[in-house]
Amino acid sequence: MRSFFELFGRYFLLMRKVFTRPDRMSVFWRQLIFETEKLGLSSIAIVAIISIFIGGVIALQSSFNIVSPLIPKMYVGFMTRETMVLEFSSTMIALILAGKIGSNIASEIGSMRITEQIDAMEMMGVNSANYLILPKIIAATVFNPLLMLLSFVVGLMGGWLIVALTGIITISQYFDGLQMEFNNFYITYSMIKMAVFSFIITSVSAFFGYYAFGGSLHVGRSSTRAIVVCCVAILIFNLVLTQLLL
């Protein structure tokens, strides 16, 4: 229990070091663009591929499970939309990104720690935590909600493709379902969730990397721990935010 609070305390101390004014704003903006490209833009393909297949699968499964003739077939579109917007495009994509960008951040910063590159920065008088971590947090927190939107749209397109290819229902039934009782706030809710999850992924994995020690084996362990902690934190915050926002 003591070590848990110790870890928590160290995390907040690191965040205090991270959220300070950058030494050079021009360098910060350059880093921010670089990290947006590295953490955000490079994730577009994986998010799109997963979303299109999951959208298709949700449409198929929904169709197979609607066996009662009393339930209109357009509910396939409705269920695809609701599943994508409420859970998949935010929580599931965040869990996938925790694996992709979380391990990337933890191992990158961890390697810099054990090869004394972070010490070299500190030695020069550079706030290494601010220089390395702040652009990653801001880039992911701002850009990843857009990835959520992309996942949502591509997922719906996946459902539409399956409907068009298999003919399980008509395309117009699918689109009627998509438009049925649509609550705009669900998009905002999902984007807020994604922003919070992105903050957790970047800050937690940077924390584990920043305090890595020993050799490459320890960096690997830090990276694994970072992903596990990120995933658990995402699930807990998913519950908390859902209770608070819906």
Binding site: R24, M112, T115, E116, Q117, D119, A120, M123, M124, G125
Partner: peptide, 29 residues
Amino acid sequence: RQNIGMLFQGAALFDFATVEENVMFPLTM
């Protein structure tokens, strides 16, 4: 610290930067 230079055991050059960028780093900051 800006008045102190240090050479680390493994050189500790930044992997993400070229030789020129490494030497330029303290000047930029």
